[in-house]
């Protein structure tokens, strides 16, 4: 799965870092560092983190690595 955090929205509440420590870590008090591509093993914790974010700053695409090149020829996912 892939994810991105809108760090303008993010207020460093660290809910994600508590609940999905393999994917989100706090760097200092407020700066968030995360892994944009997470594996199936992290799915459950990522789901918890996404739901818990008080400002809903995390966007996830649960699909695994759909490559744009595969879509060439007009096929969507």
């Amino acid at each position: 799965m892939r994810l991105v955090v809108d760090l303008n929205r993010c207020q460093g509440y660290a809910q994600c870092a508590f609940l999905a420590p393999d994917v989100f870590t706090m760097h200092g008090e407020e700066a968030l560092i995360y892994t944009p591509r997470a594996g199936e093993a992290q799915r459950e914790q990522v789901a918890r983190a996404v739901a818990a974010c008080p400002v809903q700053a995390v966007t996830v695409d649960w699909a695994d690595v759909p490559v744009a090149a595969e879509e060439a020829g007009g096929h969507g996912r």
Binding site: F18, P21, T25, E29
Partner: peptide, 10 residues
């Protein structure tokens, strides 16, 4: 919790 004890609750 984070940043010093990130895994405690998990």
């Amino acid at each position: 919790g984070p940043p010093h004890t990130p895994r405690r609750v998990h």
